[in-house]
């Protein structure tokens, strides 16, 4: 199915795309058809910088179990108050 289900959020950070490192400002997270992964559906993440054009993108297509493990790893590493990690 085309789930259309998409979460969008503003982010601050950098990512390495096809043209090298760039600042990323927007993230899309969605469960839908992948462009490359050999699965019907994957958990997809796009880290974008729309000001630099559509190709300014770091893309991930993860098998859902892998996506959950990644999310848990991220949450396990970050303190409850993210600001505390920047000091």
């Amino acid at each position: 199915m085309c789930t259309y289900l998409t979460m969008r959020l503003e982010v601050a950070g950098s990512g390495k795309g096809a043209a090298g490192w760039m600042r990323v400002t927007t993230a899309s997270v969605y469960l839908d058809h992948p462009a490359h992964a050999p699965d019907d559906h994957t958990l997809n993440v796009d880290l974008l910088n729309p000001d630099l054009g559509p190709a300014a993108r770091v893309a991930l297509e993860l098998e859902p179990r892998s996506a959950r493990q990644l999310a848990e790893a991220i949450l396990a590493l970050l303190p409850d108050e993210p600001e505390a990690a920047t000091g």
Binding site: Y4, T26, S28, D46, P54, A55, R57, A59
Partner: peptide
């Protein structure tokens, strides 16, 4: 309109990020 000349997957991501 959103992604002239872009690869289809990049164009799809750009349009999705803008709501379709």
């Amino acid at each position: 309109r959103e992604a002239p000349g872009a690869e289809p997957d990049d164009a799809a991501a750009a349009v999705r990020a803008r709501g379709g």
